[in-house]
Design a protein around this nucleic acid. Structure first.
Lengths: 239, 239
DNA sequence: CGCAGTTTTGATGGACCTCAAAGACCGTGG
DNA sequence: CCACGGTCTTTGAGGTCCATCAAAACTGCG
């Protein structure tokens, strides 16, 4: 996977607008790193020598309070960007949720390249604006949704991301793997792990979802799940 | 206030890195608009013909659910940016919290200017990354803090913003105006207005704050307020 | 004054947290 | 193969924080 030409995320990553020449310059300063599920990629406050794109796997961004309470503030999926040009310490803990591979760029040269490469800067702006939108959507979830709505929203999002990944539409009977532990879900949703577990059991008993083992979720009726999210469903296209 | 040279926010706004020549081009496509407190600047879903900087006053970004629940997802203060180049409908309601003046740029020409003006694009990226950080900080507040911690955090933030505005440090005995109604605070904090009122009464009874009228807040001991926020205080510099 | 909007205060209930223990899953080693 | 321990998950009982419902007090204004 040395070559950007065969990169699975090239069409969506920070480098997606770069031409062959610009990709060449990026290749010169890039290197891959892998982490196992559970490993910490960066601790909040660490010096960051690189910025990076997630190539495969999932990472989380988390913020903690002194007494141990933590809140996940972002899930990084393939093609998402880690780090911030112009700042040299990590603001959040970055943890590999699943096995993870990233395409890292040495920070200094990357920042220099940004100055002379509008296609890089403008794609990063676009991605950052998208992330800001997701963060704000999550604020609505954290501030106003009930536990049931939170869980349903998370499952809906994970289902549609899984569908996107395999280029399929969400549909009745679809199944996907839950990459997160109950605790990680709780941290993301602003709940306790017990509440997460109870709500999932509730959805299972109500027949909205089935579980195959602990980690595989089957959704017999996508519409039914979406009615539990509290969201407007006008945009929900079912197949 | 026609001239960017006398603009109070020029040094922090999206145009802060522009040279005289670039400012000239911006002046050609800009116009001021004013709104009274309570007026809606944009409805979610509206076509946006412009992007803008807040010059004076405060605006809020809010997201609503069908059943009426709402969550404020951002507070826009002087120098903050409204709108997103590359998208033409507003994602959130934008409401003038106080009397408000904005410096608007026609969207199409602004987008064209962005393509040829790196200082504009890079400043917007920087501002967007800062906003993303604030949004994530707010996620911690919404997901994990208690009502008392939420109120205390909001008061601390408003106090330090007020101090910044007048180029003073936060200090014991400082006073500032609460620009938000109880309901607006509740929408921002993910609480009900009754809970907001009760917590403020509690802080008042505990002597952590004093109220002069309903809207002016006096903070006799900034440190005491900050211990209520739940945050790490290592950075808190008192005068 | 009287009215509308905002804020305060009270009483009650419920959603979710906390504490606790048991059950399921999985790899390891006897 | 099964026993063993560790991790993750489920389930239960009880308590608390905050939402909800309701009404009164305050504010500003015609």
């Amino acid at each position: 996977m040395k070559d950007c030409g065969t990169c699975p995320i090239q069409h969506r990553a920070v480098c997606s607008l770069c031409n062959r020449d610009e990709l060449g310059k990026l290749e010169a300063i890039k290197y891959y790193r892998s982490y196992e599920a559970g490993q910490t990629v960066l601790w909040a406050g660490d010096q960051m020598g690189f910025v990076a794109s997630v190539v495969t796997g999932i990472a989380s961004l988390s913020q903690g309070m002194e007494d141990g309470r933590t809140q996940m503030v972002g899930l990084l999926l393939p093609s998402d960007f880690i780090g911030r040009p112009g700042r040299d310490t990590a603001p959040y803990d970055v943890v590999a949720v699943t096995n993870l591979t990233i395409c890292a760029f040495r920070k200094k040269p990357f920042e220099e390249l940004m100055l002379t490469t509008p296609s890089l800067a403008s794609r990063l702006l676009e991605m950052t604006l998208d992330e800001l939108d997701s963060a704000r959507e999550w604020m609505l979830l954290l501030g106003r949704k009930t536990a049931l709505e939170k869980i349903s929203s998370l499952l809906t999002i994970l289902a549609s991301r899984d569908a996107t990944l395999y280029k399929k539409a969400t549909r009745n009977g679809m199944a996907f793997d839950l990459p997160l532990t109950r605790e990680a879900m709780a941290d993301y949703l602003g709940l306790t792990l017990e509440t997460v577990s109870r709500q999932i059991s509730g959805l299972k008993k109500a027949g909205v979802i089935h579980l195959e083992g602990k980690r595989r979720v089957v959704i017999p009726d996508m519409n039914q799940l979406m009615t539990k999210t509290g969201d407007d469903m006008d945009g929900g296209i079912l197949v």
